[in-house]
Amino acid sequence: MKLRRISTAVAAAATLALVATGCGGGGDKGKDGDKIVIGIKFDQPGLGLKTQDGKYTGFDVDVARYVAKELGYPEDKIEFKQAPSAERENLISNGDVKFVAGTYSITDKRKARVDFAGPYFLAHQDLLVRADDTSITKATDLNNKKLCSVTGSTSAQNVKEKLAPEADLQTLGGYSECLNGLQNKTVDALTTDDSILAGYAAQKEHQGKFKLAGLKLSDENYGIGLKKGDKDLQGKINKALEKMKSDGSWEKAVKEHFGPANYKYEPAPEITEKG
């Protein structure tokens, strides 16, 4: 009996050690133990951009850093991982990132796979046109005009199917290509979220060349995506977002990254994604 009790105790201790090891690998500290891994966009100026010198800049990046700091991670403990739109749910579900902050609109379809904290920003689908163009002031003005967006864009289809069926839709590989077309007058307008458009228009090399039409063709509530069922993390992120608003950091970040585009952004939205 004594031997059996000792064997049982050893087995129980081994099981607890395995469980502890499994928890320690992820937890609040990401996969490296002492770091947190966060998914962001690498190719969206003003929101999430990896610069040529390897730095990360943008409004979403500032939000991610602020939240990480409130979770106990200084900047040198943050690892940013590229999170393309089509891969965000997989990165979260697989545990490759702790959370994603990358123009991540909260939708019912996405909430079937992940949970969200926030929202922390309200964007709208809009149009970007040349600064001297007065011919496009509403969506229907795009009829018989050349509209550009990226391949697979729901924004472009929304305009084509619902607002301007006679628009000449051209889809290219990236927004930068559309911007070049807009500048060279081979296209008349570019459509996607106004925050993304403002980020491009605010770039130093683009300042004064383009303007937002100021249309609100859809509501896009950006949230922070996290693993489904992690209510503890959701609550901590929401608390951090509330603090970011109350201490002025949210407003400062918005003005820094979008100000040069004269972007009429919405006030910080009320947090609705709660456990």
Rank of each mutant, 00 (worst) to 15 (best):
D193T: 11
D193M: 06
D194V: 04
S195Y: 04
I196F: 01
L197P: 00
L197E: 00
A198T: 03
A202S: 15
Q203Y: 02
Q203M: 15
E205V: 08
Q207H: 10
G208W: 00
G208Y: 01
K209C: 09
F210N: 04
F210Y: 15
K211W: 02
K211M: 03
L212H: 03
L212P: 09
G214N: 05
L215S: 13
K216T: 15
K216H: 14
L217H: 12
S218G: 08
S218V: 06
D219Y: 01
E220V: 08
E220G: 01
N221E: 11
G223H: 02
G223M: 02
I224S: 07
G225Q: 04
K228Q: 14
D230W: 07
K231W: 05
D232L: 09
Q234H: 07
G235V: 07
I237M: 12
I237Q: 11
I237Y: 12
N238Y: 05
N238D: 14
K239P: 05
A240F: 07
A240V: 07
A240P: 07
L241M: 12
E242L: 15
K243N: 13
K243M: 03
K245R: 15
K245G: 07
S246I: 02
S246T: 15
S246R: 08
G248E: 12
S249P: 02
E251I: 00
K252H: 03
A253N: 10
V254P: 04
K255F: 05
K255T: 15
H257P: 05
P260F: 01
A261P: 10
A261Y: 05
